[in-house]
Design a protein around this nucleic acid. Structure first.
Lengths: 336, 336
DNA sequence: TTGTAGGCGTTATCAT
DNA sequence: ATGATAACGCCTACAA
């Protein structure tokens, strides 16, 4: 079922059908209706590939996600959902590419196959070969996250440094003198994962500023690790009275460890951090935390990408978000 | 950068370049090397769209997911991840379409735009217009889930009827005489969501068989609803000593309600059901449950789809899984 | 062993 | 207001 068949049945030329569909030139009402009738009857839709070939653009964006083998965190999933929804809203299709390492067939296909007009890249490392690859290929892209030298690229990101510093300040204001940072996994830190490094930097700086002591721990992205991690903190640093975390998947485990240690929140121990609101609200009491506006960020990423596609030579734009910390019930004055 | 440019620079014809790449006819070692050299130098890759247009197939599959506005459950996310990974493994790209209702632009684009060779459809209702739409379009597709008349389609599904019956039997064997089913949301039931209806059917049938009493409740897909739901059960049916659920997102709330009611698991109250192992293992004590093999199912769906694409006229194949119930710690003898 | 040419389905530039 | 025709980039029968 192609445009020629429609043209034949409607007794017109292919170009007339094309124009009748696109409306890019006037078609007499009579023939327009005749054509539309045939189209409806045969349920014809233009072949998107042929159109893309001719027009030089695909109306499709690529979304590079971490491979599923590593279970995605809720926040990552929120990003994916947000991007997909925002793209659908803009009548863009989304081609998914699960790609972890530096070299990956799926990623290469997306980058070099001219199947997408642009790419949204998630889980960017401080040094990320994929960024270079995309730049070299001249493919417009927007990062959800940024490298250590982010000036030359488009991105949206969360200011983990500032947010964790805010958390520490909040705890210090409440009289806590010994606080812990529960970071993401050691593997991610070793891989140069930006949020982990930036959160740590913000933590250390705030600790120094406030003249309090801090310990930081890596923790895998699951509740069992969270439980073990908090137990370890309580064991190795019994003086610690509060923790800040960017590891939302560890929260249920943190909660369990506190319960089984007989510590109440926030009476005996305060917890705060950066998390999707969904996780924060599932903590008991609900978590005082900076709510990551994942939906907004995904939408922003799509909108930046369309902008960057339509004008690839424009100066890169950035969006560094510092969402407010929602005061809920998990932080309180330090126990004496 | 197209094949003609490569040909020009290598001093050969375009067809020779094409054959050098595909290997579908012999090319002298000398020219092959010369061509490869130019390709490497310019980092040329064939335009996937042009290739798809010529070959009549896209090496891409569509994955129709629920819209993100409704937050995806963990199980759904596992399916998505599994499908994407399995597809990447088979060198297939995945085009995502978030589509809820019967009519949706994104879905229509996927179905009629000839951008995909086949489709994997998630969250199928007992009566699902999208199934008819795909059949009418003649596009190969595989359901993760099935309609009420599933013979004419390819699908993989979980036998919720059998699994919930098994759960009830297990509880009855332990001496429970009054059990509850915590189902998915009333909206999903009203929409004819298969698992909810089939689980309810299995529940009622098993109740009848064992001569015990059962109550069933709908519950939204979040922990707050789970908490409220279990509280309601305890209030309205204090005789109930056990619950089975297919609503994994409700589990944390169920746990909280039991704790605040002062009930221990499994001493005072048993809990079982169907859940992703990840949720089951996060329950305390860990949940005796049928673990949904989402990864396997996703992989199976992709493999069925490739089969169905390569032979669209083959008789539809099905896969109805009844994963074993993993005995963990959340079920025990009924309290007296 | 290599080159020529036609066509996949569309859109856009001419021309009528 | 409409038609013929030439691309878009690739693959592949046919010819040499």
């Amino acid at each position: 079922m192609n445009i020629g068949e429609i043209a034949r049945r409607a007794g017109v030329s292919r170009s007339t059908v094309s124009y009748a569909i696109s409306g890019k030139r006037t078609v007499s009402e009579a023939t327009r209706r005749r054509i539309q009738h045939v189209i409806d009857e045969l349920d014809y839709r233009p072949n998107a590939n042929a159109r893309a070939l001719k027009e030089g653009r695909t109306r499709t964006i690529g979304l590079v996600i971490p491979p599923a083998s590593r279970r995605l965190t809720d926040m990552q999933l929120d990003f994916v959902a947000a991007v997909v929804d925002a793209a659908a809203h803009a009548d863009l299709d989304v081609l998914l590419s699960p790609s972890g390492g530096d070299h990956d067939r799926s990623f290469e296909r997306v980058v070099t196959g001219r199947r997408v007009d642009g790419v949204i890249l998630m889980e960017i490392r401080l040094e990320d070969a994929r960024v270079g690859r995309l730049q070299q290929a001249g493919l417009p892209f927007v990062g959800i996250g940024r490298t250590s030298h982010p000036d030359g690229m488009w991105w949206v990101d969360i200011d983990y440094t500032a947010l964790i510093a805010k958390c520490v300040n909040h705890l210090a204001d409440l009289g806590h003198r010994h606080v812990a940072l529960i970071n993401r996994s050691a593997e991610l830190v070793a891989a140069g994962y930006g949020p982990a490094h930036r959160a740590l930097a913000g933590f250390k700086e705030a600790i120094r500023r406030r003249g309090i002591t801090g310990v930081d721990y890596c923790c895998a992205d699951d509740s069992a690790a969270g439980e073990a991690c908090l137990q370890q903190i309580l064991r190795e640093h019994p003086e610690v009275t509060a923790a800040a975390t960017i590891n939302e998947a560890a929260l249920p485990g943190i909660q369990r460890a506190l319960e089984s240690a007989g510590l109440t929140v926030p009476g005996d121990f305060s917890v705060t951090g950066v998390a999707a609101s969904h996780w924060a609200e599932n903590f008991r009491p609900q978590l005082t935390a900076a709510d990551v506006p994942a939906l907004d960020m995904g939408a922003h990423a799509v909108s930046l990408l369309t902008e960057c596609i339509s004008d690839p030579d424009a100066a890169p734009k950035h969006l560094l978000l510092t969402p407010p910390i929602s005061l809920r019930g998990s932080t309180g004055p330090a126990r004496r």
